[in-house]
Design a protein around this nucleic acid. Sequence first.
DNA 1: CTAAATGCAAAATTTTTGCAGTCCC
DNA 2: GGGACTGCAAAAATTTTGCATTTAG
Lengths: 152, 152
Amino acid sequence: MSSKPDQEMLEKKMAEFEPACRNAGLKLTHQRLEIFRELAQALDHPSAETLHNRLRRRLPTLSLDTVYRTLAIFEKHRLINKVETVESQGRYEADIGRHHHAICRLCGAITDFSWSFFDEAQLPEVVKGWGRVDRKSITLHGLCRKCAHSGA
Amino acid sequence: MSSKPDQEMLEKKMAEFEPACRNAGLKLTHQRLEIFRELAQALDHPSAETLHNRLRRRLPTLSLDTVYRTLAIFEKHRLINKVETVESQGRYEADIGRHHHAICRLCGAITDFSWSFFDEAQLPEVVKGWGRVDRKSITLHGLCRKCAHSGA
DNA sequence: CTAAATGCAAAATTTTTGCAGTCCC
DNA sequence: GGGACTGCAAAAATTTTGCATTTAG
């Protein structure tokens, strides 16, 4: 459903990230670049802790609280996205384009999918009265193929 | 967007809850009944802690961990729903019927809405390969009317 | 009766904060 | 150089667990 971003794609994302970061008034520190890079190449919507573990190999002094702070500030400026989830741990993604999520209730894996029919549909009238909608996304819950086959 | 459930509605929900609970093989304890009742009459998708605070007036010995355990087991048996959220605190609702959520990024309020057009739409082909979908829901993010008007 | 549920206390997990030192712009 | 950022440590917030006691069925 999602395809592995290759090196070329990753460099493109990094190239877009730098000006976006400056635009947001954020300083381009080594840590921020690496945290974004790690998230951008991740396929699994990692948590802060997961990212920290992966980054420690490259950045042994990187602290977990910096990862938390950085993800929070990236999200605030919409450079990344925090996934709507039912888990206790927050999960993040670098892809802020229109897409949706399917979550497996067994293995917890989050998979992206697109659905332009929905993206282009007008929200129902009743929502108009609620306020200003900035984003809309779908979350599917169920069993991924792998878990469904492993006798659940 | 949602209407206040009156006393009659609440009693109906309680009447439906009891057999559903037994069906799930769960014992009908005083605490469980009161936790469900409190959630069923709540309009704000409360957290475990919020529910506990509200219930303490009536049940002074009710412990927070029982609230956590009870909500978790209710959700496991699909007697209640845990809302997909970006917050660190889990939020719950007794309404397990088809509906969707609009979340205000300022005040954090969660509002329900319905959209049968979406509910009845076929998911895109690409999802078929993912696995078995049990539930699908929409989350809107933005500013509720009140927060939008208070100059955000 | 008996297995399940509760309350208490303690721990584990996840996230946030204060502050001194460091680094980008 | 100065304000933003980081790392460290500590704390806060949220959720989970072990165990003795109580309770529903």
